[in-house]
Every structure is written in C-alpha cells, then in structure tokens.
C-alpha cells in the first residue's frame, strides 16, 4: 500500500472517503460540505464521488445538525456531521448532553446513536472572533459520548475511522491550526486506531508532557529544545479525552515523577485540571514536583493580533518544565 505525504485535513478526507466507500450507511452532511467541500476542504470531492444521497448540504442550523444526527443514527445510519467551527457547536451541546449521550441508556440499548460530530477547533490561524474556540472540557464532562482529538495526520485518519465505526456517539475535534502545518506518510489501508488510548510520542525520564490537539506539536518542540539542555521529556498525546487512558498517563508519571499538562483552552476547569486530579489521586507519591499546567488565560479568546498570548508555545512549555525540575 502506497504511503503518501498527507496533511491532517487530507487525512480526514481520506478517512471520510474510506468510510463512505466501505459502509453504505455512512452519511456526511453539514454546512457547505457538499458542493463546496467544506470551508476547510475536509469533504472536498466527496459529493462528486458519492452524490447527494450520501453527502449533503444542510441548512445553517447547528442544533438541527446535531439533533438530526441523533435521529438518523438511531434509525440505522452512521452520520458523520460537520459543525463548521467549534465556536458554533454550543447549540449542539443540548443534543449531545440531553440525547446523544443518553439514548442507548434511555432505551436500555434498544436505540443507539452511532454518530460522529466533527468540528475544526482551536486558535492560531488568525481567524475572526468566535472561530478559535476550544471548550473540549465542557464536552468531555458529558456522559455517554466520547471526545477524541487527533494531533497528526496518521492519528486523524485512524481515529476518525474508529470514531465512525464506533457504536456510540463521538465528538471529533480537529485542530485546524495543524490542518496543513505538517505532513507525514499516511497509508490509506482502512486501519483504525484504538479509541480510549493515549499515545506516547517520545520517551523520556525526567518529566512527562501531556497534551492533545495542536499543543502536542508544541510539546514535541519543547521536548526537543530541552533535550539539548540534557533534559529528557516524555510526550503523551491523550487523543481520547473521554474515555481517558489513565494507565498510560500514570505509568509515565510514575516513571518521571514530574508532569506538565498543556492546553490552549482557558485554565479554570479545563481538561488539564482533570489530568492533574487523576495524578494527584493515583500517583501523588511518585511526584517529585507539583503538577504544572500551561494553559490559556481565563479570558475570552483574543482577537488575532493578541491570540499568541493566549496560546501556549514551546517556550512557555519548556519554562514550565524547567520550573518543575527545580524541585529537588
């Protein structure tokens, strides 16, 4: 099977195309996804290949997109719907929390909801206001759904396929800042990656860096810089925020004794707090330093000229690691 240098957004498209081809019940829909191929082109070419029956433009209607996904999923299809930007996903939370995450339980398994809601998320692309949000923690608190965030083209491909094949609802958040920022070989072989599993991207002994989405890249950059200073960092991509792979997280922290959690969302009640709490509950005695968080500030996402202040970068991450190392 040919390996092709692929960007993250192309990997999303490859996975969608593969899913549409392998399963008649897969439906792709959302705002501008058909003729226009999506505002980020994630669905480009799918309408031409699969037709309006399978790939369809909806009205501009986020609560509807989420709600009709619940309906069409329970009636035997596998909807993969797009919310154009995460900032416009708030109306869909009603459907995710009140229905998608509850339908299987609410019918003792008679009806289920194998839906995927995809949304580009996060900052760093100088987008207009409301277009750079990241409130993954709000979603991760909803029982009965999974929240999955890829951080590379290969993981985007494998995790999206897994999300589509999963029998339960999945919110799939695509870090749009790295939609085209990196390329790597992706084999379009239909192989899914496991959900509920974190990925150790770099091994190290001195400190554990934990992140997801676009921040993984900054953690890897920080780890590379710190290596030059003689510090060896382990980098974990959580990938599945719910359900969280606690075992991988704890094994790493027990080994390194130090942990820095990185998120671009505001600090207060962010997902990093959950990670820190898990470590405090289960690995406190392995710690040689307090768990550190590098996060956005508790303010609204700034307009593009100041958004760099909000987004953690390799420099801030490395500084946090050095601070952590100062505990002896």
């Amino acid at each position: 099977m040919a390996e092709t240098e692929t960007s993250l957004v192309e990997a999303v498209r490859l996975a969608l195309r593969r899913a549409l081809a392998e399963d008649e019940t897969v439906l792709v829909f959302g705002e501008d996804v058909a003729r226009n191929g999506g505002v980020f082109r994630a669905t480009e070419g799918l309408f031409a290949e699969f037709g309006e029956r399978r790939v369809r433009d909806t009205p501009l209607s986020e609560a509807l997109i989420a709600g009709m996904s619940v309906g069409v999923a329970a009636a035997g299809f596998r909807p993969v719907a797009e919310i154009q930007f995460m900032g416009f996903l708030y109306p869909a939370i009603d459907q995710l929390a009140n229905h998608a995450g509850r339908l299987r339980n609410r019918t003792r398994g008679r009806l289920s909801c194998p839906m995927v809601l995809r949304a580009p998320y996060g900052g760093g692309v100088h987008a207009p206001e409301h277009h750079s949000e990241s409130f993954e923690a709000m979603l991760a608190q909803i029982p009965g759904i999974r929240v999955v965030v890829p951080s590379s083209p290969a993981r985007a491909y494998g995790l999206l396929l897994a999300a589509i094949r999963d029998p339960d609802p999945v919110v799939f958040l695509e870090p749009k800042r790295i939609y085209r920022a990196l390329r790597e070989p992706v084999v379009d072989d239909g192989a899914a990656l496991p959900l509920d599993r974190a990925f150790v991207l770099r091994e190290g002994d001195d400190a554990t860096l934990v992140a997801w989405g676009a921040m993984v890249r900054d953690c890897l950059a920080a780890a590379a810089a710190l290596a030059a200073e003689g510090l060896s960092c382990e980098v974990i991509d959580l990938a599945s925020l719910s359900q969280l792979d606690e075992a991988t997280l704890l094994a790493s922290v027990e080994k390194t004794g130090r942990c820095v959690v990185v998120q671009e969302a505001p600090r207060h009640c962010g997902f990093a707090a959950e990670v820190a709490a898990r470590i405090a509950e289960r690995a406190l005695l392995s710690l040689q330093a307090p768990v550190a968080r590098v996060t956005g500030y508790d303010t609204v996402m700034p307009l593009p000229k100041l958004e760099h202040l909000q987004l953690p970068d390799a420099g801030r991450i490395a500084a946090a690691v050095r601070e952590t190392m100062s505990y002896r």
Partner: peptide, 14 residues
C-alpha cells in the same frame, strides 16, 4: 422540543 430534530433525522432515514 429537542426531539423534533430527531424526527426529521428519522424521517430522512425512512
């Protein structure tokens, strides 16, 4: 009313 979108989803499936 949050079940009304489900109905159109079901109707689409039908």
């Amino acid at each position: 009313a949050s079940h009304v979108p489900h109905a159109v989803g079901v109707a689409w499936a039908l």
